[in-house]
Nucleic acid binder design. Structure first.
Lengths: 178, 178
DNA sequence: TGCTCCATGTAACACGTTACATGATTGC
DNA sequence: GCAATCATGTAACGTGTTACATGGAGCA
């Protein structure tokens, strides 16, 4: 939808190379927005052409091609312009729901195993999020606006995982009924 | 990801024209998987070429081009093959989270209004889902396996909306702090 | 020497969105 | 006759995925 704006925001937080950006992205915004390195390099190229960002050879480049990207005033203006517009709520495109409908239509497909695998994945993510929460947002510490917002974003993820696990357990009972 | 399998499943539930499929899709699987009619016609063409489905002129076509698609044994086999594989859990790609990070980075952007708009959207959807629940899955009625599954899918949507609304209210407080 | 990680890229293709176009049917 | 809806399609473009390729740096 607007990967470019997500990348711009990440670059605004910290100028970095495409590679670093890819890794940071995976560990922050990437929790709810995955992007491959190919997408990222393509977008960086476009944004540089558009004059939103500029690149320079990294101080620690040596003989490598490493370059650092930073946001130009034009890029920042574009971000603010974008942020003022409406945002469409995400849709929950979940393959597993289709499989469930198929199961309902043609009879038991033995989806319980797959559902249990998914529960394990959700629990892994939840554990990770809670670990981050304890590390970065210790209970009782007074928090600045920015920290509060980051905490709320993380909480969104935590709620989603908890929600998914609870639902999956109930679903499992239905699948195991007979 | 596998729109084709979602469409196949929908066609298996009921053979229909591309247009009807698009409308039914929007009102069932489409609650958590939107597709435009262009995507649907394209996929139908591909699946017919692949021998998964067959089309015939609709009985009520008159002078129109209306055609009915139905799933062939090959298509059904493909569905079962697909259903046996692993399904990747969906990612929560939400633009608004990026806006929040931007707000945290550069200062208040006045996102409260937009958040309130989103709360209203979530509440609309929730009301719709609950209405469907009352209509199709009346409390206390004994339910067959298929109905139980459909009910659980709907519940997934209901939980998600409730979840989103609760989170959004908490988020709103943070945004309105100062 | 060979392995892994850092760092960037090309190419091809699949999937999703938007705009535009066409013609029949239905209801006012 | 006109508008809305039914029904299907083309074209162009933007986004996302997968496979493959290149070369430097650090380490055993």
């Amino acid at each position: 939808m607007s990967l470019s704006h997500a990348l711009l925001t990440s670059l605004l937080e910290k100028s970095s190379s495409g590679y670093d950006l890819a890794r940071r992205f995976d560990k922050s915004i990437g929790f709810f927005w995955h992007a491959t390195h190919q997408q990222i390099y393509r977008e960086l190229g476009r944004m540089e052409t558009a004059g939103w960002i500029a690149s320079s050879i990294a101080p620690d480049a040596g003989k490598t091609r490493k370059r650092i990207y930073c946001v130009l005033p034009q890029g920042q203006a574009e971000l603010l312009r974008w942020a003022a517009g409406p945002s469409s709520p995400m849709d929950l495109r979940d393959e597993f729901m289709v499989r469930l409908r198929l199961d309902a239509a043609v009879g038991p497909l033995g989806l319980a195993r797959e559902l249990q695998r998914r529960i394990a994945l959700h629990e892994e993510k939840l554990a990770l999020y809670r670990q981050i929460e304890q590390r970065d947002f210790a209970a009782g510490s007074s928090q600045a606006r920015a920290a509060l917002i980051h905490h709320m974003i993380l909480k969104k993820g935590i709620l989603y995982e908890e929600n998914s696990i609870a639902w999956a357990h109930e679903m499992l009972e239905v699948l195991l009924l007979k």
